[in-house]
Design a protein around this nucleic acid. Structure first.
Length: 460
RNA sequence: GUGGGUAUAGCUCAGCUGGUAGAGCGCCGCCUUGUGGUGGCGGAUGUCGCGGGUUCGAGUCCCGUUACUCACCCCA
């Protein structure tokens, strides 16, 4: 059988890379829980009618069918979920009687989209979502809360002592603001205007202005005003004055300005040198179901990859006809952030196995002695393994080195026949006597860490 | 779904207008008779994506096909 080739869009990681992904997921989970969000997992499949509610994405759904299913029978029609919001909405309706509202949950799972893969775009990938959902109403301060939680998570991911990812820029806008602005200008087709303005990062401003006139019924002056609004971006609430200076007034605009200003003021204290938040009035987010706050996030140095973390406020994502459940949430593309960095070799794990120590093996007969050392270390929470064969010590050291295991433990015997123990740090060659019941590695060495191979050549 | 590019060793790639395959890195062994990394010497490895055609002869030319990849659409 010939060697299998990779399946495009279904990324798989090597063990050392997986270390990074798990550290990222651990960090996200810890942060979300620190903010009191409950974790849930939903099934991988949803009925097709649920999945198709989102409209355009329907073509991307992977439909599930049993190989042996008889075509005659009408199949129930289920497909793999393509995001975590639709399953969550369904979960909320299904369990509404058992949940407490406002319900705050996080969810980190695989999702599937039948798109054409590209750098940072996959057909199977991991998303990390947080949402807050209310019954009938959901106060605006939850928009601020969700922003702060994700900002906190991103800050940890970018912190050099945690994961050390490149920096992030969280861009926030508010649909009420832009819709109110367009209405105040006298434009009627606000959705179309929004859709066209959203193309600003792809098309030049003049082109968008032409489209606004041609397709959205705007006058050149109105188009100009729309573009002026979209150029406003500030890291504090000073955008309010800039918008006011454009001389447009509308009730919805005021509401949006107030909300966005509140959000930026509330979240700004969490920003640092790695993670910034900016009010960016060009962000609109396609059409979708967003009704207020909208988010996008760029990864520093990878701006062309698009948004890696998006979301917003939706006033009616879930409804059972009687009760409406408004929500606000953000979704982080774990795979989108990580896979390009891992495949380019920007980041990887410090080792391909959890082991801190390789216990060397003198000969097969003494395997029990080596096993005993390993068990003594494990009893104290130190991950380790025993050498697979009693090869020359040089080979056993190489075995450890290949896997990034920092220590090799040698078990010997003194003249009186008593066991002797030495542990060698193979990075600096330092070898010292050690007691299996007491020796402890540094906390940095205890677990695999994230390293940047390109900048790592400084030590040793 | 639309359009372009690519497919040769484990990896990155070379192979000029057709003459039955090569480099670097990696891997294995020895120098080094039980403590790796550097250095020296030696060694192994390919259905040249798959199928067909042209030809005395195809990695090379032609057709088809599959996969990968980039851009568009859309999005995490």
């Amino acid at each position: 059988m010939s060697k299998p080739t990779p399946l495009s869009g279904f990324p798989e990681l090597l063990p050392a890379q997986r270390v990074v992904e798990q550290l990222v997921v651990d960090t996200l989970r810890r942060t979300f829980e620190l903010h009191g969000f409950a974790g849930i997992e939903t099934r991988a499949v949803e009925p097709m009618d649920q999945l198709l509610r989102k409209g355009d994405t329907s073509k991307e759904v992977y439909v599930l069918r049993r190989l042996q299913a008889d075509d005659a029978g009408s199949d129930a029609g289920i497909g793999l979920h393509f995001d975590l919001t639709v399953p969550f909405a369904r979960y909320v309706l299904e369990n509404a009687g058992k949940l407490e509202f406002p319900f705050r949950r996080y969810q980190i799972q695989k999702v599937w989209r039948g798109e054409r893969p590209q750098d940072g775009r996959y057909r199977e990938f991991t998303q990390a979502d947080i949402d807050v959902i209310g019954r009938d109403t959901l106060p605006f301060h939850h928009d601020v809360e969700v922003t702060k939680v994700m900002l906190d998570a991103l800050r940890r991911l970018a912190h050099p002592d945690v994961i050390g990812l490149p920096g992030f820029r969280l861009q926030v806008n508010n649909r009420k603001l832009i819709q109110g602005f367009y209405l105040g200008l006298g434009l009627s087709d606000v959705d179309e205007v929004m859709r066209l303005v959203d193309k600003l990062d792809k098309l030049p401003a003049e082109k968008v202005a032409e489209l606004l006139v041609a397709e959205a019924g705007a006058t050149p002056a109105q188009a100009e005003a729309c573009l002026r609004l979209a150029t406003i971006r500030t890291d504090d609430d000073s955008f309010v004055d800039q918008v006011r200076a454009l001389g447009v007034s509308h009730e919805l605009l005021d509401e949006g300005l107030e909300e966005l200003a509140t959000l930026v003021r509330g979240a700004a204290p969490l920003a640092d040198e790695h993670v910034r938040i900016t009010a960016d009035l060009s962000i609109a987010r396609g059409l979708d179901y967003y009704t207020g706050t909208v988010f996008e996030t760029r990864l520093d140095g990878y701006e062309s990859m698009g948004s890696i973390c998006s979301g917003g406020r939706y006033d009616a994502l879930a409804s059972d006809g009687r009760t409406t459940y408004p929500g606000v949430g953000i979704s982080l593309g774990v795979s989108r952030v990580l896979v390009p960095l891992l495949s380019r070799g920007v980041l990887t794990g410090s080792r391909s196995v959890p082991s801190v120590v390789l216990v060397a093996l003198t000969d097969e007969a003494s395997r029990p002695a080596s096993d005993a050392v390993a068990d003594a270390l494990r009893a104290r929470g130190i991950a380790c393994e025993v050498a697979p064969t009693a090869a020359k010590f040089g080979k056993q050291i190489k075995h450890a080195d290949r896997r990034g295991i920092p220590f090799v433990w040698f078990v010997g015997t003194d003249e009186q026949g008593a066991p002797t123990h030495q542990v060698k740090d193979i990075r600096d060659g330092n070898q010292v006597d050690a007691d299996p019941a007491a020796w402890t590695p540094s906390t940095d060495d205890l677990r695999p860490q994230v390293v940047s191979p390109t900048t790592e050549e400084t030590s040793s």
